[in-house]
């Protein structure tokens, strides 16, 4: 990933994207990884009794899958880092909000039963 544009990188009028194939090896690797994690999800669901830790594992696996989908399939790993940050930084805060409210939900539960 590069930080700066070179002059003439993008010409809005005569734009023809510079494309090159990176081959299908990485894509198939990502596929097997996603499939493996999903199978692991399935196994853990039955092997491990429900607990906060198990939920943590599932959410962690979800984030790993998200990393590979966004990075490899959506090609964000190979875009300029500025673009990747514009997209990822707000999502970090949103994820913080989601996990925060999962936790606060339990606190609401306690308050309701008081």
């Amino acid at each position: 990933m590069e930080f700066y544009n070179k002059p003439g990188d993008y010409d809005a009028i005569n734009y023809i994207p510079h494309t090159e194939s990176h081959g299908t090896k990485e894509l198939w690797k990502t596929f097997w990884l996603l499939l493996g994690i999903t199978v692991l999800d399935f196994v853990i669901y039955f092997v491990m009794p429900a607990s906060g830790w198990r939920n943590f594992i599932f959410i962690f696996f979800g984030l790993v899958k998200a990393y590979y989908i966004v990075g490899a399939f959506m090609h964000l790993k190979h875009e300029k880092i500025n673009l990747a940050l514009v997209i990822l930084v707000p999502m970090v805060f949103v994820l913080g909000l989601i996990s925060g409210l999962l936790y606060e939900g339990s606190a609401l539960e306690v308050m309701k039963s008081m």
């Binding site: 544009n5 002059p7 990188d9 005569n14 875009e79 500025n82």
Partner: peptide, 22 residues
């Protein structure tokens, strides 16, 4: 056209800041 773009500074428009298409 290409030459005209090359002479533009980055913030003068006509060029994508992230080097991806519109």
């Amino acid at each position: 056209t290409q030459a005209a773009f090359e002479n533009q500074p980055t913030w003068a428009g006509g060029r994508s800041p992230f080097n991806v298409s519109y």
